[in-house]
Structures are given as C-alpha cells and as structure tokens.
Amino acid sequence: MTARTGAPLLEVRELVKHFPIRSGILGRRRGHLRAVDGVSFEVRRGESVALVGESGCGKSTTARLILGLLKPTAGRVTFDGQNTDELDRAGLMGFRRRAQIIFQDPYGSLNPRMTVGGMLREALRVHGLARGRGAEQRIGELLEAVGLHSDDAGRYPHEFSGGQRQRIGIARALAVEPEFVVADEPVSALDVSVQAQVLNLLADLRERFRLTYLFITHDLSVVRHIADRVAVMYLGRVVELADCESLFANPLHPYTQALLSAVPAVDARGWPERIALSGELGNPADPPPGCPFHPRCPHPAKDERCRSELPELEGGAACHHGS
C-alpha cells in the first residue's frame, strides 16, 4: 500500500480535550485530565492513517473528537474543507453519513434484540438511502460484501461468532456509503486466525469502495499491514508521525523505538534488543513538565532541556535529540 496524494479529507489542528476532575459533594473542579493535548495531523483522501499508543494516551478520545461524539476544549476538525463544529443540522447529518465508526467490541456495539437486517435497514432509513425492496436488495449486497450470506439478515447477533459479528459491525458502517471510516481497535478482541480474515477484508473494502481509514490501535504489528502513515501518541500528544515503512525501518522517537522493541516477535531474528522502559505511563492529570516522555526516556543525551521544554513535532519526531 502506498500513500496516495490528494487534498486532505480530514484535518485536525491543535485539538485539545481536557476533562474536569471533580470531587466532594459540591463537585468542585479539582483539576483537569489532559486526555488530548494539542494534536495535529491530516488524512488525505484514500489514505489509511493509524493512531497508535498505549492505554490512556488519548487515541480513542481523539477519534471521538473527530467524529463529533465529544466536544473539543480547543482546536478544530476540518472534514472535506468544512469545520465540523460549524455544521448546521443538515450539514451534521451529512457528515455523520460520510464518516462512520467500527468499534472494538462487536458484542457490545450490536443491539441483541435486533436482527442483522433490522440494524442495516434502520441505518438506510435514517439517512433516507433506501426503502422497501431496494433496502432488502442493498442489505443482501452489504452482507455479501463483508463475507456473510444474504440469508443472514434474519438472524440475531448472538447466532454469530466474534469474527462474524465484527463483519456485521463493518456492514453497518458501510451501509450508509461513507467515505471515511474510523476503526477503533477493530481486531483487538478477535483470535489471530480470524483477525487476519478481518484485516484482509478491511483492505479489500478500502480498494473496492475507495475508503479513507483512521485506525486506532495499540498493536504495532497490525499497523504495518493496514496503514500508509502512523502517528504515535504519548500522554495526549503525537510524538512521532511518519510513513509506515520508515517508522518500522527507522523509528526516530525514543518512545517509538521502545514500543517497537517491546512487540513480542515470534521470529526474533533481526529484531532489536528490547529497550526497557522504567516506570509507567505518566498521569494525564499531572503531566510532567517539559517532554512528557522524559521520566521514562532511556535516551543517553537526556538533559535539562528535556525536563523543562516541550519539544515540537519537527522532522517527524517530537524529541529534542531527534536521534
């Protein structure tokens, strides 16, 4: 997969989300949890970008801000040239049709009391895309497109396996003919043999429907099979942004290096010696001053500047010592 050129379909600028921390019976504000703290990147039409990081780094919050499921504290999201915060009712409805999400947990995100056909029919009806016989035909096509049978429309979610349920989630996202799909850990809950089936399906669908993807994942090995570009997040910030191939061949940020070296490889030949990190992910309610990664950073040149000055994302990595 190669990056395609073109105008950005999605532009994220200086996105910030702080959640208030309240305590006591009066619910006084005690501080802020800086879930997302100044994130900027863009996704070009037809491109697949992955947001990668460990739990608590703000990747899922970023996805929810982009889709308008959360309101940002500051910054803006531009979709196809329009600021999504300024959309009117009709504009918002259009945006919600064009941008869809696939969730991690296919058990939790499907209504257990609705047949698969019913779920797809509802999506088609809400967006006024198809009714009656047209809708039935469309439902059959969608199920075939994700590798299920058109007869499956009459069945309920519990009758399917985990991988099949994820296929239903994908069919539901595709029902409204979106251009942009956010996939939030779409294969994390699946067994490896099934995970490969779903990753291949997502790659096929991308070609077939010319989709643009934003992948949210903690799993770097998955990223390599699905993304053109990767943004690595740490404590609410993007610390490295690079083409997928160059990120794996030559990671610049010490955090990316450590993260890559920690992926357990079956075949360890040619894999770097593990870089041990001390301590745990910092506290987003009280991020360290300077570079957010400095308390755990193993870089030999770590100095006073790292402890006091926030590095900008320049030349691919947000690090004072580039490497």
Partner: peptide
C-alpha cells in the same frame, strides 16, 4: 502453520495476511 502465517509481522515485507478459513 496456519496460526503462524496469520500473525501480522513486524519484520520482513508487509504482505497480505494468510488467514485460516472459518472459525473454531
């Protein structure tokens, strides 16, 4: 063999994954 082929790799060339058909 199938399990090993279906895992995404961090080394080597990123090729299409070989899935095992069906499920457990």
């Amino acid at each position: 063999e199938g399990l090993l082929r279906s895992i995404p790799r961090v080394t080597g060339k990123a090729a299409r994954l070989t899935a095992i058909a069906g499920s457990v």
